[in-house]
Simulated scan of single mutants.
Amino acid sequence: MTEPLPAGAPWPRNAWYVACTPDELAKKPLGRTICGERMVFYRGKDGQMTALEDFCPHRGAPLSLGFVRDGNLVCGYHGLTMACTGHAASMPGQRVKNFPPIRAFPVIERYGFIWVWPGDAEVADPAKLHHLPWAESDEWAYGGGLFHIACDYRLMIDNLMDLTHETYVHASSIGQREIDEAPVSTRVEGEEVVTSRTMPAVSAPPFWRMALRCAGLPENDLVDRWQICRFSLPSHVMIEVGVALQGQGGYDADPKLKASSIVVDFITPETEHSHWYFWGMARQFAVDDPTVTDAIREGQGKIFSEDLAMLEEQQKNLLRHPERRLLKLNIDAGGVRSRMMIDRAIAGEQGSEQAAAE
C-alpha cells in the first residue's frame, strides 16, 4: 500500500538512502527517523536485514525499545512479537494474527551500508541503488563516520557543492587562499551535477601534506590540486580530491605521483531541519595501512565538525529570519542546480501519485 506523500515534504521518497552502518545493529534494534518516517532496523533470521515502522500496533510503543528473538522483533512493552513482514506473529495468551500489519520498508545491505527506500515499496528497485565501484575493489581503502546535524539536509548539499568555504571554515586543515582564486565550473553530466576547480602549482595545506607523507611523496614540494564535486539523487555527494606533484599531470598523473581520494557524503534527511550525515574517504594510497585510515578518519572528523557548527548556526539564523531572501553568487551554481534536480524529483513523485488517485 502506498502511503500518502506528506504535504510539502522537501525530499524525494522513492529512492535509496543510507539508513545506518552494520555495526550500529550489532547488539540491538536501531530506531531512526528517515525522511520523516520513524523506522526500526534489525536482523531477522539468518542475518536478514529488516526495516519496519517503529510503532507497536498494540499500544503504540516504539518497537526499537524491544529485542530480537528467533528472528522476530519483540515489543519491549507487552511482548507482542512482530514478523519481518510487519504482521503480528504472536503474544503470550493472546490471538493477534488478525492485527492489521504495520509498514515494512524495502531495505538492502550493500557496500558496507544499510539502505532503505522510504517511499512506495511497489516501485523499489535495487538496480537504482547508487553504484560505488571503490567499495568493491581491493585497490581502495575506506574509513568514515556519522554525524547527526540539526539543519536542513539541503544546506549540507550546498556546503559540499561549493568548497569555497574551505578557505575560511577549514583554514587550519584543507583551506588555502588559492581556492578562492581558482575559477569554478558547473555542469550537468547525465544524472549528476558537477562542480570542479583546479589549483596548479600550490603548496599543499596540512591535511594534504599528511596525505603526501602517507603516499611516500615529498610533502613540501609544490603540487597541482583538484576538487570535483558530484551530486546525484536523492542526496549523495562524491568529491574527487587530490594533489599531484607539480607538472606531472594533475588529476591524470601516475598514481605513484599523487595522493588522491573520494570524499564520500551520504546525506539522509531526518526532519525538515535535521539530517544524518554519513561521511568518509575512499583512497587509493597506503590502502593496506590501517593507521592511515585512522589518521584520515580523525582528520576528517575534525573538519566536518567545523561544518556541523557552521551549518547548525546557519539553520538557526534562517529560522529566525524566514522572510529574508538570500543572495546568490556564481559559486552557488552547483547547489542551485542540485536543488533543482531534487525539486524535479519531488514534483515527479507528486504528479505520479496524483495521477494514480484520479
Score class of each variant (00 low, 15 high):
residue 125 D to F: 03
residue 226 W to T: 02
residue 76 G to E: 12
residue 313 E to L: 11
residue 142 Y to Q: 02
residue 242 G to Y: 02
residue 190 G to I: 04
residue 260 S to L: 09
residue 330 N to M: 10
residue 347 A to N: 13
residue 171 A to S: 08
residue 154 R to V: 11
residue 254 D to V: 08
residue 129 L to T: 03
residue 51 A to N: 11
residue 206 P to N: 10
residue 315 Q to R: 07
residue 41 F to W: 00
residue 170 H to V: 01
residue 183 P to M: 07
residue 132 L to M: 12
residue 96 V to I: 11
residue 84 C to E: 14
residue 128 K to C: 12
residue 302 K to V: 10
residue 213 R to A: 12
residue 190 G to Y: 04
residue 285 F to K: 02
residue 56 C to R: 00
residue 120 D to G: 08
residue 311 L to A: 00
residue 119 G to N: 10
residue 128 K to N: 13
residue 261 S to F: 15
residue 326 L to V: 08
residue 320 R to G: 05
residue 229 C to W: 15
residue 184 V to Y: 04
residue 115 W to R: 05
residue 67 F to G: 15
residue 85 T to W: 06
residue 82 M to N: 01
residue 302 K to I: 09
residue 246 Q to R: 07
residue 136 E to Q: 06
residue 305 S to A: 09
residue 275 H to R: 03
residue 69 R to E: 14
residue 218 P to I: 00
residue 59 R to D: 00
residue 282 A to V: 00
residue 39 M to T: 09
residue 357 A to Q: 11
residue 87 H to D: 09
residue 199 M to Y: 12
residue 57 P to C: 05
residue 125 D to V: 02
residue 242 G to S: 10
residue 93 G to F: 06
residue 42 Y to P: 04
residue 212 L to P: 03
residue 1 M to G: 14
residue 69 R to L: 07
residue 133 P to T: 02
residue 313 E to D: 11
residue 90 S to W: 04
residue 214 C to G: 13
residue 342 I to M: 13
residue 195 T to H: 10
residue 231 F to W: 05
residue 254 D to H: 09
residue 285 F to V: 05
residue 331 I to F: 14
residue 174 I to G: 02
residue 149 I to F: 08
residue 316 K to Q: 14
residue 45 K to G: 14
residue 18 V to D: 08
residue 273 H to I: 07
residue 31 G to L: 03
residue 33 T to P: 15
residue 303 I to P: 02
residue 220 N to M: 15
residue 203 S to N: 07
residue 29 P to G: 01
residue 111 Y to R: 03
residue 24 E to V: 00
residue 286 A to G: 07
residue 276 W to A: 10
residue 10 P to K: 01
residue 224 D to Q: 01
residue 39 M to R: 08
residue 350 Q to W: 03
residue 198 T to Y: 02
